[in-house]
Simulated assay, not measured.
Amino acid sequence: MYMRIARAGLAGAALMGFVHSAGAQDVTLKLHQMLPPQADIPAKVLKPWADKIEAESGGRIKVQHFPAMQLGGKPPALYDQVKDGVVELTWTLSGYAPGRFAKSETFELPFMTAQSAEATSAAAWEFYDKHLRDEYADTHVLAVHVHGPGVLHMRGAAVTKLEDLKGKRLRGPSRIVNDLLGRLGASPVGMPVTAAPEALSKGVIDGTVIPWEVTRPLRITELVDTHTEFSGPRGLYTAFFVFTMNKDAYDNLPADLKKVIDDNSGLELSRQFGRLMDEGDAHGRELAVKRGNEIVTLGPEEVDRWKAASKPVVADWVKAMDAKGYDAQGLIDDAKAMIAKYAGE
């Protein structure tokens, strides 16, 4: 009980401070996220975004950036920290709350994502605008995006065929991806991406599935020996991210400052996140090549075997979503059409 009261008091105090500042038309927004400041997303999207907001508001909006969970809690708590007003801004992974953002999982389904994170992120924003506003109604969403195609990063021998995954302990980012890994024969281990380096170094896991981009700040390439990619127009999986703002903090802004936020939100910001992911993937892969790690790209016939093995993940998801009253196949069809549109297919 004391913990709940203390948390409510902290959120209330944060909001009272914000409202007072907004009344004076001088606002400070606390941005809390999981990655170190030198990682691509904080350094090349979040900081430039904050600088632009400050400049376009004439200095009336200040953004205080707290990277690497400096304000406490674990990454899965970030969305609630914004919802509850403990902080005003966060960038986080919706999959850290299994089942909470059910329709968002459409983009996490196997072999859904295009090879371009920018194209898929643009589709993700259109999908959000059509299908997900109710799912995130307790915050004010600024952008949504995905990362590039997921890659297998393994200690020891490379994964060259489906059977090589049997019994391998693999870190996965979300409920859907962990289900996929299990169906493919691995032993999935759910954990935030920031925990993967230690788990690899201690042998707790045999590998991890992440995009190339995040291998650099977490130095994954130095902890593994091999990497497995997938040929074809679709990647193995992706994860769904949201950059969002406390709803009361946004609603309490004067109209001119709301416009500053609005002018720097939406489709183009979502594309910017995705474009950076694509650039980061290229750089991350280059590091693995320079280090001499083995990189395997599965050919079309082998990829088809993985697609066949992953079909039960989609079938089970459709069944569960239909039972909740959603049109699961409609969501899948819309996502595929939107991705194809932005991928130029």
Rank of each mutant, 00 (worst) to 15 (best):
Arg4Gln: 14
Gly9Arg: 11
Met16His: 01
Val19His: 05
Asp26Thr: 14
Pro37Ser: 09
Pro37Lys: 09
Ala43Tyr: 07
Lys44Leu: 14
Val45Gly: 10
Val45Gln: 10
Ile53Ser: 03
Glu56Met: 06
Glu56Arg: 11
Glu56Ala: 06
Ser57Glu: 10
Gly58His: 09
Gly58Ile: 05
Lys62Val: 09
Val86Phe: 14
Leu89Thr: 04
Thr92Cys: 14
Tyr96Ile: 05
Ser104Gln: 13
Pro110Trp: 01
Ala117Tyr: 01
Thr120Met: 06
Asp129Lys: 15
His131Arg: 13
Glu135Ser: 09
Tyr136His: 12
Val141Pro: 06
Pro149Ala: 12
Gly150Phe: 09
His153Gln: 13
Gly167Cys: 01
Arg171Ala: 12
Ser174Glu: 13
Asp179Trp: 00
Pro188Gln: 05
Pro192Asn: 07
Lys202Gly: 04
Thr208Ala: 15
Pro211Tyr: 08
Glu213Lys: 10
Val214Ile: 14
Leu218Lys: 10
Arg219Leu: 08
Thr221Gly: 13
Asp225Pro: 03
Asp225Ala: 10
Asp225Asn: 15
Ser231Gln: 10
Pro233Cys: 14
Asn246Met: 07
Asn252Met: 12
Pro254Asp: 11
Asp263Arg: 12
Phe273Cys: 05
Asn293Glu: 00
Glu294Ser: 07
Pro300Ala: 12
Lys311Trp: 02
Lys311Arg: 15
Asp316Ser: 13
Lys319His: 09
Ala323Tyr: 13
Lys341Gln: 06
Tyr342Gln: 01
Gly344Arg: 01
